[in-house]
Design a protein around this nucleic acid. Structure first.
Lengths: 359, 359
DNA sequence: CGACGGAATGGTAGCGATAACAGATCGATG
DNA sequence: CATCGATCTGTTATCGCTACCATTCCGTCG
């Protein structure tokens, strides 16, 4: 020992059974199995060449002494963290939860883990989270929805890792995208309502500032209304970004809407939670749905399938979307590990209008 | 260079501005700021002694060259991963999402990050996830609900890190616990219904095998029914563990229940989603709620606050519970970092019966 | 005026794994 | 029987950071 040597946490025997006070390392396994640490390392990776009998012997030793691979060290040495970072606006939302689950399952198939963060619809939080996550050197990033600050984009560019923006497709993508146009979907819903004979179609929810959640849905609504020559301006916005209050905003919103625009005969809501809140408020007040006013949602949340009446909505398989986003990132990661870059891909996935009893 | 030296990813200049092809390291920052790497390390930790002017100079260099601390290396060197692992049965559940959010926020206050996993109510998945997570050397573990296999318990014991079991309190805790007795809460609901005059009270949901989700709620129901001398056996179980089908199970279940036990005048459901499904099915069939049959839930999901009628339920602040669980773990982590162990704590948090229109 | 102490900073080893290549072993082949 | 190639295993250096202690630089004090 020279004077600067770090004192070990506990004494290390040079041979024999490792001290019970210390977690076993690969060197302990190697010693007990009579092989080198490299061979142990290979035994624990599924894709490496090693005699099956050797692997079995090593795995037996691992099991016996309770050895657990330390991926912190592995990540440093191999320069592969094994992480994918994912940012969702909120986890308390079935669509985002499904997206995250799809990504997690796709990543797990390749042995990668997810670092999940919630931005709560705030760019400051998003920046802070990305900064914290980059310190873990994730191998890829998934962003769900939203406009991203220039600082966010710069950080991701500097990190030089694959990025996928999922769900609503942005106009100015960072890299990969996968999702569908919320504006297009909402416009389709408006046209469908028009075909069914509704003539004064309103929009409920979202806030008006650009880049806000719901802005693209609102824009799609407005474009469709104009194209059809229907009366414009039937809009009631929410004051707050989407939160747990979503249903309450829908309940309050429908009342304001009907009072301000008594002729309205159909409402397109920014998402199913608002639609459900609106629907229940109508029932409470004795307003028939869809007789007095039809109600449509967005997202096909479970509540829309079981409410009475069932709610017409825009359906997208968020779980599959998450898996697809994961697949795209994994492809890019594999390429990056072999030193190749991947061109950005832009995938549009289908949505469908689920016509139910509320329209 | 000797023959065994690892080939660097790209050439490393010995001085001057770091090559743009290579991510800057602490050594680059140190060189440019004219200090040692130790001083850079101190500048980036908030709690260390360093001249403020030095810190500012170092931070400026970091900003200029886009240096990002590599916590993979830090974790290895300091033997502190900065991770807390959390396992929830499902993320697509408002209670669990709130729990995870509370834990995340509590951890973030201390600079720790969360590794989140979903067990999907399967012990095999739980074991696999814990194994994968332990390779990251988390500093603590939160488990939400459920019975844990002996192998799970052994792994956590061997890891020798603080563990908190949150939500439903287990009979045989691993370490810390925080939550409340689901059995007690459900029994309280039954008594409340009895006080209101209901006499044939049923239970809907859960599966019957021991350790299944809902088992403790069902046990609490049965105990209360027996204690009150009410007619027993009014139970309809679900065939599947809780999933996205939760509302559909409630809808199907209420029909089966009313057909098999026509005298039932109140139903306690295993959770609000089943209660909601049941309620909507009743409306669809023209069965008045609570006139024909009262319906109560569990968990105070948003849907229960806005449905028509609003659903009576058992309310718990899951976010606060998550924060509390996080606080307990952080205390233990701090102690562990100073070499001290912490005694297991068992915290019971309050629940309340939210009486609404459905009973 | 020299000893002392506290604050700031520096030097070095080591955390535990893996990359890269070298070496050993063994059966097949000419 | 020597050579070759394929397969398996070993050696060494390194990833980027932080713990541990040493050192330097001051101002203070007996």
């Amino acid at each position: 020992m020279t004077k600067h040597e770090r004192k070990p946490a506990s004494p290390r025997p040079k041979g024999g059974i490792p001290s019970p006070k210390r977690a076993p390392t690969m060197a302990d396994v190697a010693r007990l199995a009579g092989v080198s640490t490299m061979t142990v390392s290979r035994a624990l990776k599924s894709d490496s060449v090693i005699l099956e009998s050797t692997r079995q012997r090593i795995l037996a030793v691992c099991e016996e002494i309770g050895y657990i691979l330390d991926e912190r060290a592995g990540a440093l040495s191999s320069n592969q963290s094994g992480f994918i970072s994912a940012l969702v606006p909120s986890i308390n939302n079935a669509n985002f939860a499904d997206l995250a689950r799809g990504l997690t399952d796709a990543a797990a198939d390749s042995g990668l883990q997810i670092l999940l963060g919630y931005t709560e619809y705030s760019s400051e939080k998003e920046e802070a989270l990305i900064g914290a996550m980059l310190r873990r050197r994730p191998e890829a990033f998934m962003l769900v929805t939203g406009h991203h600050s220039e600082r966010t984009r710069a950080m991701l560019r500097a990190a030089a890792i694959p990025v996928v923006e999922a769900w609503d497709t942005p106009e100015d993508p960072i890299h990969h995208t996968v999702g569908f146009s919320f504006a297009h979907a909402t416009a389709t819903m408006v046209r469908r309502l028009h075909e069914k004979g509704y003539r004064e179609i309103a929009f409920l929810g979202g806030t008006s500032y650009p880049g806000s959640p719901g802005a693209s849905r609102r824009a799609g609504y407005e474009a469709a209304i104009r194209a059809l020559g229907l009366p414009e301006g039937r809009i009631v916005s929410f004051r707050q970004p989407p939160t747990a209050l979503a249903m309450g905003q829908g309940a309050a919103g429908i009342v304001e809407l009907i009072e301000r625009f008594p002729g309205v005969d159909a409402v397109v809501c920014v998402h199913d939670l608002a639609a459900f809140g609106a629907l229940m408020e109508c029932r409470r007040r004795g307003w028939d749905v869809p007789g007095r006013c039809a109600i449509a949602g967005f997202g096909d949340f479970e509540v829309s399938r079981y409410s009475a009446p069932r709610i017409t909505t825009i359906q997208v398989d968020a779980y599959a979307l998450g898996r697809m986003a994961g697949g795209m990132l994994l492809d890019s990661i594999r390429s990056a590990r072999q030193g190749r870059a991947t061109a950005a891909r832009h995938v549009t996935i289908p949505f469908s209008i689920e016509e139910r009893e509320s329209t």
